[in-house]
């Protein structure tokens, strides 16, 4: 009965119990999980791809796209089941919890085309008619005529401003390089 009258003991026990359970179920296993070595086949990201990953975080792509394939028949289209070594180099890893769009863990293999990815980023509906993914026009310039060295994106007429050329900015290229880098490495 003493707990009912001793606020400090009561709260001390409740806090301590929670702390101990937290250490056992989260902190210690996290230390353990962190030590997993990366798969040897994982390539370092290029500078472009690294910047692309930052943009991927900033734009919140991960709220709609997982990078986490379960070892289940339903996930077969996206690649092999993910393993801890896939994520060892990632801070933060981008497994995700929701698939409003498809999984991207292996999209560099499934959809390697630079042109497709650029058009899709400019306006997803130009390549997938009923897509609900946002367009990212702020990663592109539009101008009357392309200059030397501009990367012109062949957006279908119906989806671009009349008579204008759509030019990929560096950000668009960075994101595409990042997407192209997403390839599942061999599990040894």
């Amino acid at each position: 009965m003493s707990l009912h009258t001793q606020h400090n003991q009561l709260i001390g026990i409740a806090a301590l119990l929670f702390l101990i359970l937290s250490l056992v179920i989260a902190v210690l296993p996290a230390f353990e999980a962190e030590r997993t070595p990366p798969l040897s086949g994982i390539e370092q990201l290029s500078d472009e791809a690294k910047r692309g990953r930052v943009l991927y975080l900033e734009e919140g792509c991960g709220y709609c796209h997982t990078q986490f394939v379960r070892d289940l028949p339903v996930d077969k289209p996206y690649g092999r089941g993910s393993v801890p070594g896939d994520y060892a180099l990632e801070v933060p890893p981008l497994l995700g919890t929701q698939r409003t769009g498809p999984d991207l863990a292996n999209v560099g293999v499934r959809q390697p085309s630079e042109i497709w990815n650029l058009i899709h980023l400019y306006n997803p509906r130009a390549v997938v008619g009923t897509s609900v993914m946002p367009s990212y026009p702020w990663f592109f310039d539009t101008k009357a005529a392309a200059d030397e060295g501009d990367i012109v994106v062949p957006v279908p007429e119906a989806f671009k401003p009349d008579g204008q050329a759509v030019i990929a900015k560096q950000e668009a290229m960075d994101i595409v390089r990042y997407l192209q880098s997403l390839k599942q490495a061999e599990v040894e």
Binding site: A15, F18, L19, S22, A26, V27, P29, A30, F31, E32, A33, E34, T36, P38, P84, Y87, A88, L89, E90, V91, P92, P93, L95
Partner: peptide, 21 residues
């Protein structure tokens, strides 16, 4: 407690992050 454990960086590389998440 949750906020401190969630934000301390020491065990949050790779899958460590997901355990904490």
């Amino acid at each position: 407690t949750i906020v401190v454990i969630g934000y301390l960086p020491f065990y949050q590389n790779g899958m460590g992050n997901i355990v904490i998440q």
